[in-house]
């Protein structure tokens, strides 16, 4: 299965990635090569085979709904690119 330059743009948008114009063609080729390589999977007979998500088929364990983390606001704020009064700053979204 081969994907078009329009598809590449669409996946980039889904991935929140901006493609540099001069690299789009090469990236499209690479992705097409990868997809045709993984197409070998289609030949496998997987009828009646359950998909496998965890090697031991373990299920998600739920913990009791109690407070287990203390407030770390100041510590966490140290890594923020922009912060004011303990709030993360982003470009204006509401005019």
């Amino acid at each position: 299965m081969s994907i078009s330059p329009e598809d590449i743009q669409k996946i980039a948008k889904l991935s929140h990635l901006q493609l540099e114009k001069d690299k789009t063609e090469k990236l499209g080729q690479d992705i097409n090569n990868i997809l045709s390589f993984v197409d070998q999977l289609q030949a496998a007979d997987t009828s009646n085979i359950e998909p496998m998500a965890h090697p031991m088929d373990a299920e998600q364990i739920l913990r009791a709904d109690i407070v287990s983390e203390h407030d770390q606001r100041e510590k966490l704020a140290k890594n923020a690119p922009a912060i004011e009064d303990g709030l993360f700053l982003v470009p204006r979204v509401i005019e």
């Binding site: 993984v38 289609q42 496998a44 997987t46 998909p51």
Partner: peptide, 8 residues
Amino acid sequence: KAQQVRRL
């Protein structure tokens, strides 16, 4: 499909 092959 890949998750099924994984089980195989």
